[in-house]
Design a protein around this nucleic acid. Sequence first.
DNA 1: TAGGACATGTAATGCGTTACATGATTAT
DNA 2: ATAATCATGTAACGCATTACATGTCCTA
Lengths: 185, 185
Amino acid sequence: MPAAKSLEPASYVVLGMLRLGARSGYDIKRAVDVSTRFFWTISPAQIYPNLRRLERAGLVRGRSEPRGRRPRRLYELTSEGEGELAAWLRRDEPLTWELRDAGTLKLFFADALEPAEAAEVLAGIRRRSERFLERMRHEIHPAAVAVEEVEGHAFPLVSLRLGIAVHQAMVDTCRQLERELTARV
Amino acid sequence: MPAAKSLEPASYVVLGMLRLGARSGYDIKRAVDVSTRFFWTISPAQIYPNLRRLERAGLVRGRSEPRGRRPRRLYELTSEGEGELAAWLRRDEPLTWELRDAGTLKLFFADALEPAEAAEVLAGIRRRSERFLERMRHEIHPAAVAVEEVEGHAFPLVSLRLGIAVHQAMVDTCRQLERELTARV
DNA sequence: TAGGACATGTAATGCGTTACATGATTAT
DNA sequence: ATAATCATGTAACGCATTACATGTCCTA
């Protein structure tokens, strides 16, 4: 019997990364660090127990490949796992969207500051997004392009374009608001 | 001696909401629900203990105003609290930005789907942001405008404009990507 | 052959939410 | 007068991170 109830998101990250070619828990951790981290983080303590559970559920198949006396386990997706992943992707359900943003939080309370100081809060938010854009464009983007060309996976790049667009909008809007604020002084 | 080390973000939400006119823990909860919730959530279980701690630290002053036999406590900011809030707003520090977005996560793995199904994932993300925009423009925005006009607090509206810009960018980018995807079929 | 980086995992801790408990006020 | 809603809080639980423990491989 396939998984009776739907899995937690972290499990789908594991399944998805296996599908994209990861074989070990460590592979998954590294892949997350340069990709989904920007919209969904998971930690080692979620990855390894999840692999075991998914194996018991028949969604992945694992085998031991110790390195010397050090245990080590490699995994691959079963066809059941592939099906479960696709079913999740197709499932029409509420998509969680949760943000924790200390920048916008400070901005919200910035009436307690002088206008010049409030402008500095805006500038801090803008610089943060500029740094995000820098990293996305120069570190992540080339890797995503390579993955598309070599492995034929197009959607990591698509999701990156969405992230870039969001931070570009942050930068543009901050600039606009900074102008309005200095104009008022 | 004023607070030796800097507080957690939830404490600044409490201080900030008191400054904006909230008097009780419940006031703070309601204010959060219609404003900072979109970029920083806190729950009752964080609010009430925080008020007690802030009172012990001398940053807020509380008094009992029971309703019948039901205990009830009202608070106001002390000048020390006002100073601590402003110091945090001025402090130049790394601004956390963390997102949990199941939509972009699905999009990242959408190579496992047919193009038409992947377009449906994009459409789901777009509709979610359209609903956000709807609520921000029709529920939150009027309230923020009223707060600006009546109380003179301008920055709740500024932070809202930032949030609207982000979701508008999501909508625009999804539309563009949907077009590209259907063009490829 | 020693030091550092790579790799694999686990345990403990802490934080925040969910659910609950309780009482007052309002509406019907 | 009864239900529904407003209001004030707390306790327990669960999840996810931080820190740690350990072994292997590379390199100088």
